[in-house]
Design a protein around this nucleic acid. Structure first.
Lengths: 155, 155
DNA sequence: GTATTGATGGACAATCTGCTCAATTGCTAA
DNA sequence: TTAGCAATTGAGCAGATTGTCCATCAATAC
């Protein structure tokens, strides 16, 4: 879907100050309230904006350790049942299937390095998982963001 | 930081239906409005809730391809300048330093596989980057989520 | 016994929302 | 050029929500 400058500025504005309402947005962007409302509805309808939920920092909850676990699975049964099992582990935040022989990559968090071992054991125990290899994220110089992308996409 | 059941239910509620306000939350959770407001303020103050901005789906903007690029950097100058340069690329959504010899892992998106080549070239061109190896995310059986973690953390 | 913290219920004015309407603008196609 | 369509605009309205007070109360810590 194509978005224009107004959309991009709207998203950027909401990203920076989410508390402001539609009316305030319209004032800041020099547009009518109806326009802003229409834009937001469209962006939501097209799936660009998937939600407005609160963003949670796992580290603030005590899950200081983030790791990326690459796992090799048995090809026989496919990856769906494996993904379903992985989804049951709360510490698994994200699962992707990736190129390179039906393997998967998942992002996990844990309370400590020792706790990470427990989480990894949970993953290894999943039926169909053959082997895992994990790397620990030491630091996150660039935390997840989409703003630059949105600005770049705004035509 | 410790959170209790009420906090967890509050976050879960907002995650599922972000549009509802504080008042509606208090009704659904059988608590006073002031309580909910205080909880939200505290969660925000403690850094558990980092923001309420709109969540953007890069795929809906035309960035259908997601890849994870592991990169090896020259140790000499450290990773900070490299991260700074990577942050300038809009398609780079996230950068971590990881275990395994000062390497980095970044998540990138692109409009197509051909476009991914362009993005990777941008990364390779960054001063200090020695080599890259990337895996493409074919599917995402479990998209990024924190809800199960929050529920598990709620004491 | 006495602070302290968090929860509660109530109140107020000011503001915002959802919704509708009619007029206007900008752009496309005939 | 002109007709037509989609988007934008400005305006209005009733109802709901917000921010911000306050006094009270229960549980906990000192």
């Amino acid at each position: 879907m194509m978005i224009d400058q107004l959309d991009a500025r709207l998203i950027a504005l909401l990203e920076e100050e989410p508390r402001i309402g539609v009316l305030e947005c319209s004032r800041r962007l020099n547009a009518a309230r109806g326009t802003i409302q229409a834009r937001l509805d469209r962006l939501a309808a097209k799936g660009v904006i998937t939600g407005h939920g609160p963003q949670i920092d796992p580290a603030a909850l005590g899950f200081d350790v983030t790791a990326f676990v690459t796992l090799q699975i048995r090809q026989v049964s496919g990856h769906v049942p494996v993904a379903d099992r992985l989804a049951l582990v709360p510490e698994v935040l994200e699962v992707h299937t990736i190129t390179g022989g039906g393997d998967m990559l998942c992002r996990v968090v844990a309370r400590s390095n020792a706790d990470l071992q427990r989480v990894i054991d949970l993953i290894v125990d999943v039926e169909g998982v053959v082997r895992t290899s994990s790397v620990i994220a030491l630091d996150t110089p660039v935390p997840y963001r989409t703003l630059p992308l949105v600005k770049a996409a705004g035509t």
